[in-house]
Design a protein around this nucleic acid. Structure first.
Lengths: 203, 203
DNA sequence: TATTTTTGTGAGCAGTCGTTCAACTACGGA
DNA sequence: TCCGTAGTTGAACGACTGCTCACAAAAATA
C-alpha cells in the first residue's frame, strides 16, 4: 500500500507541543516547527493540513496526555485529596524548565482566543481541571477534611482561577516564595466557601 | 525650533495599547498599528525607535494610567475596602468589549516573557496591584472587617493570583456566572489566611 | 525673506511568513 | 519485475514582516 511513515506522530506532537508552549502559536514559525519536529513542510501539510491543524492536534494531545495525566495523578487518585490538591499546585511551580513554558491552556486562552476551534479545546481542558478539583473536594468532604456544607462547585471554580493565575505569575517569572505563598493561600481558602442556603454558622 | 508635532502622544499610546491588548505583541503588525494610531512609520520610528519601543511605551502608559487608576478607584479610595475589592474583580468581568481584551499585564506576561525590558514593566504593574490589595486589606483589618490576625501579605498575593486567573478565564470566554462565582470565592477566602506565627497580636 | 530645524509622508527594502508542488523514494501486489 | 500507491524532500511562491530614507511641509530664527 505504498511507503511507510518514517516518523512517530506522538513524538512529533510532543515536540510541537513543547514549542507552542514556549513560544506561543504566533511565535513558533514553520521553520521552527520543522527544526523541532524534524518534519519537512510536505509531510507536515500532508498530515495536518495547516499550521492551525497542527496546533489543534497539539492542543488535543496536551489535553489528552498532559492535562488528564496531571489531573488523574494529583486530583483523582491520591488517598488524601487535599494533599493531592496541594501537590497539583506545587508541581506547577517546580517544573525545572527555564524559562517556564507554563500551561498550553493558559497561554492559548490568552494568546489566540480568536480562532473558534481553539476555544473549544481550551474550554475542554479547563473543564477537566475543574472537574478534577470538584472530585477531590467531594472526596475530601466525605472524609471530613472540609466543612460538611462546603460549596464544591464554587470552590472548584475558585481553585481553577487560582491555578490559572498561578501559571500567569510563574510565566511572569515571580520569585518562588511568592508562588508558594499562593499555594498556601489556595489551601487555606478551601473551606471558606459554604453553601449559602441556610446559614447555620457555628465555629 | 522646527515643525510642531501634529499628533497627541497620549492618544497614540491609548490606541496602541488597545490594539496590543486585543491582538498581542506578535499579532499586531506595523500596518495594523499604522491604521489604529493614524501614524505613518516614519513618525513612529522617529519617536519610538522600534516596535519594541512603542510596545514598552504602551505598557508603561497602561501601568501609569489604566492600572494605577483602577487600583486607586477600587482599592485605595473606597471607604469600604472589602466592597472596593469586590468591585475591582467585578469591573474586570463587565467590560462590555467583545471579545474581551483582557489585561495587558496578563497577556504580556504570558505572551512575550522573553523580552527582558518587558518583564520589568509586568513586574511593576503586578506589584502595584498587589500593593493595592495589601492597602485595602490593612484598612479592612483596622475597621474590624477581617480577623485581626489576617496575613495581609499572603492574602494580597493570593488575591493577585486570583485576579490574574480571573482575567485568563475572561479571556477564555467562560460564562459570566462562572466568573462571578470566582469573585464570590475571592471574597469568601479573605479572612481564611491568618498569621501562622504565635505572637501577641493586639490592635 | 531666506535659512535652519523639526516633523510628516509613503514607496520600497531585505527578510521571513505560511504554503505548495513536482520530483524522488520506498513499499505491496500482480 | 514492474506498476500503483503512499510518503519524503526541499526549492520556490506570493504575501507580509519590521524598518529605512529621500523628499515635502511647516515652524522658528536670522
Amino acid at each position: 500500500m505504498g511507503r511507510r511513515q518514517l516518523w512517530d506522530q506522538d513524538e512529533v506532537l510532543a515536540s510541537a507541543m513543547r514549542l507552542f508552549r514556549q513560544r506561543g502559536y504566533l511565535g513558533a514559525s514553520l521553520r521552527d516547527i520543522e527544526e523541532a519536529t524534524g518534519l519537512h513542510p510536505g509531510s507536515l501539510y500532508r498530515t495536518f493540513q495547516s499550521k492551525d491543524g497542527l496546533f489543534h492536534a497539539a492542543l488535543d494531545a496536551y489535553n489528552e496526555r498532559v492535562v488528564q495525566d496531571r489531573v488523574r495523578v494529583h486530583l483523582l487518585e491520591p488517598a488524601d485529596p487535599l494533599a493531592g490538591i496541594r501537590s497539583f499546585f506545587t508541581s506547577a511551580i517546580e517544573t525545572g524548565a527555564e524559562p517556564d513554558p507554563g500551561c498550553l491552556l493558559t497561554n492559548t486562552a490568552v494568546e489566540s482566543f480568536t480562532l473558534p476551534a481553539t476555544a473549544a479545546g481550551v474550554h475542554h481542558g479547563l473543564a477537566v481541571i475543574e472537574g478534577g478539583f470538584a472530585d477531590a473536594l467531594t472526596r475530601a468532604r466525605h472524609r471530613g477534611d472540609t466543612p460538611p456544607d462546603l460549596d464544591v462547585a464554587t470552590t472548584a471554580a475558585h481553585l481553577l482561577a487560582l491555578y490559572q493565575g498561578l501559571l500567569v505569575l510563574v510565566r511572569a517569572g515571580l520569585p518562588r516564595t511568592t508562588l508558594h505563598s499562593v499555594t498556601d493561600g489556595a489551601m487555606a481558602s478551601i473551606g471558606s466557601l459554604r453553601t449559602v442556603r441556610k446559614q447555620d454558622d457555628h465555629e
